[in-house]
Amino acid sequence: MLVTLTINGQIIHVERETPIFEAAKKLGIPIPTLCHHEALKPYGSCRLCTVEVVKNKWPKLVTSCNYPAEDGLEVKTDTDRVKRTRKMVMELLLARCPHVPAIQQLAQKMGVKTSQFKKKGDEQCILCGLCVRVCDEIVGVRAIGFVGRGTEREMNTPFGIESDTCIGCGACTYICPTSYIEMVERPDAPGGRSLNKGELTLDSCPNSYVCENCDREQQFLLETMQVIEKFRRENEKRRSEQKV
């Protein structure tokens, strides 16, 4: 079903529940973001894509990456309130990661020169969760994940040790906006590459990405066969019981 909404006064028709972010993209209205990627489900953690919507005459701030389009919605992407909010997000991120080029550049582009906050971190990760989600939603192995909560939240492998599920595909390095996770050459690793996250190394694929001969694949097939076998036996048992 198509719905009609206005973005900065321009009218657009989109499929119902399309995120505002996508609708704005169609109109060529740029909205900055650090945690959204078209291949992944919206997450809404960086709040940089904040826009103002007017619903029932009551303006409020929402994140455009996950706010669904609906009929008669009025969206504004460049009000003072929106600009103020985005600048504040950048200032906070700049205070967290003062030495990350990607953040510095984006801040400069948005007119934020320095952060007014005193507490400076030395992080490279902005906890946008792109790597975690790509590993989960696209690759399907979830070798990395979030750890902890609040200000102590971080991205890591379980127990901070080498992951036994990582296949070394490198999707996380590709999607990381701040180059926190990198693929490094490691001649001793079977694939010759490995992921570098701070002091932690994730193994590359032990089988040089040849899935046919993979141990894990074999293991998977074996387990599946066992399950099928079990079912077959149970079925036969039940049938013989019925006969009796």
């Binding site: 979830r142 070798a143 994940g145 979030f146 909560r149 492998t157 992951s163 599920t165």
Partner: peptide
């Protein structure tokens, strides 16, 4: 213990990273 969490991860077929996240959250 790590080994126990790894065990339930295998038995329940839940990624260890999800269990670890819960355990630290």
């Amino acid at each position: 213990p790590l080994e126990t969490l790894r065990h339930i991860s295998h038995r329940l077929e839940i990624p260890l990273s999800r269990i670890y996240y819960i355990a630290t959250f």
